[in-house]
């Protein structure tokens, strides 16, 4: 266990020592991947209420659809896009031996991310208005 602990400490020091894009992308990928796994467990838990009854599904789904969760939803989609774009970057580097272009690919991913997020926020706008909830359904 001591060895594992010192390895973790070494990792923290490593972030400060390797101040380059590749290392930044590496840690963004790990942290976003961990966060998405936590979300996946929560998402499955909320939706699993469909197993007991449609009414309990509706009750729980009602709790997570409001302007507050619409903001969280943007963070979620940002996390998905970050992980997806960097994942595609890693796959291109690994499969096509493009490691020499890893920095250019990083900036390409940043540009794509920014463009996608503008669209995402635009599409989410109606969900920020509390008056838009409670109709239909």
């Amino acid at each position: 266990m001591m060895a594992e602990k010192s390895k973790l400490k070494g990792t923290v020091a490593d972030i400060g020592l390797n101040k380059n894009l590749g290392n930044l992308a590496f840690w963004i990928h790990r942290i976003s991947g961990f966060g998405l796994t936590v979300y996946l467990l929560m998402h499955t838990y909320v939706l699993s209420s469909a197993i007991s009854s449609p009414r309990s599904f509706d009750a729980r789904m009602g709790q997570v659809q409001n302007p507050f969760f619409a903001v969280l939803e943007i963070l979620l989609i940002a996390g998905v896009l970050v992980h997806m774009l960097n994942g595609l970057r890693i796959t291109l580097i690994d499969f096509f031996d493009w490691s020499r272009s890893h920095k250019a690919l990083f900036w390409a991913a940043v540009v794509l991310f920014a463009l996608m997020m503008i669209l995402v926020i635009y599409l989410q706008l109606p969900k920020f208005n509390p008056e838009n909830y409670g109709m239909g359904g």
Partner: peptide, 30 residues
């Protein structure tokens, strides 16, 4: 991961982004 890129773009578009709250209301069982 490559398959998930396709699955997630589709899933997010249908159930998160292009779900029009003003005409379709909140997502429920039905």
């Amino acid at each position: 991961g490559l398959f998930l890129a396709f699955f997630l773009i589709t899933h997010l578009n249908v159930h998160h982004l292009f779900h029009d709250i003003t005409t379709e209301g909140i997502i429920d069982f039905a």
